Amino acid sequence: MAKISHVEIFAKFQKIERVMIKEIVTYPTPPSVQYATDVRVFNEEIESLIEDLKDTIKANSLEALAAFQIGSYFNIVVVAQDGGEFLELINPRIINPHGRVTTIEKTAYFPNLSAEVTRYETISLVYQDRELQQHSLKADGAFSILLQRKVDYTFGSTFLNKLNKVEKKLFQKKLEFGSDLAISEVCPTTFKRDYIIKVINIIMIVMVVLLLSSLFVDKELWSYQGYLALSAFGLNIVYFFYAQYEGKRFTSCTSCQIGNIIGTAVISLIKLSLITLLSYFIM
């Protein structure tokens, strides 16, 4: 049997030792810095950090990691590519963003959670390599979204700061439950569309008052009644389509919402039709 020299054993030991899988920073641990520190000198510390990012990406089957995500304050992002290769982005900066696109995003900082985020559709990115030579690239589609999300971390930020008021409120509820699935079971009891129904009901009450008034006064009121009926009918149409749009935001209760929307619209139209017919024959 061939003997293994001490040098070979030491080399193999170093190779095994070098695999450093770091713990990924997750919510609620806050960002360690507001802005990442640019790399001014590429040394062993930076090389080790980049290798740690690669090992952690491979171990967790991730697309990319920013240095912040493993607790470092350097401005570095590593992106996994096909064939086991990696794109090393040192001191990345986004320039020339164009267009807007809304997508569903996930990130390791918020495990098991997703959010609807609006970002730039296409970007250009300037960065440096290990020799601190300047490079640039253009990105669109999913790659553009990925790069924007990772660069967010270099500013001590997450996609939470990109959400609109409605989505942020929904995402904060997801944080309380700890998963998208939990929040999907929570169906709201009130909607903005309810205000449309309230206006329609007020119009129909006015129509009933006019109908009763016509029994005691000689003044012609039918023209007013006709305008009110047309207004209520138009609002019913608006309610039907807007309610469906609003209902799509809560997928867990979509089926019951559709039934409720149709039922509410039909009942409202039946009441409006009865009042209008009575008004036509009496007034």
Rank of each mutant, 00 (worst) to 15 (best):
A2E: 06
V7G: 08
V7S: 15
F10W: 10
A11F: 04
K12W: 03
Q14W: 04
I16C: 10
V19Y: 09
M20P: 00
M20S: 04
K22F: 02
V25N: 04
V33Q: 02
A36S: 13
V39E: 10
I46H: 07
E47D: 06
S48L: 11
L53E: 08
I57Y: 15
I57W: 07
A59V: 03
F68D: 03
I70T: 03
G71Q: 06
G71K: 08
S72F: 11
N75Q: 13
V77A: 11
E85M: 14
N91Y: 11
I94D: 03
P97V: 03
V101S: 11
V117G: 05
Q128H: 15
D129Q: 04
H135E: 09
D140P: 09
V151R: 01
Y153I: 00
F155P: 05
L160Q: 02
K162S: 03
L163S: 13
E185V: 06
I200T: 09
I200K: 14
I202K: 07
V206E: 02
L210W: 01
L215P: 12
E220T: 08
A229W: 12
Y239K: 11
F240K: 07
Y245W: 08
E246D: 09
G247P: 11
T251Y: 09
C253M: 01
C256K: 01
Q257M: 13
N260Q: 07
A265G: 02
V266S: 12
I267Y: 03
Y280A: 10
M283H: 00
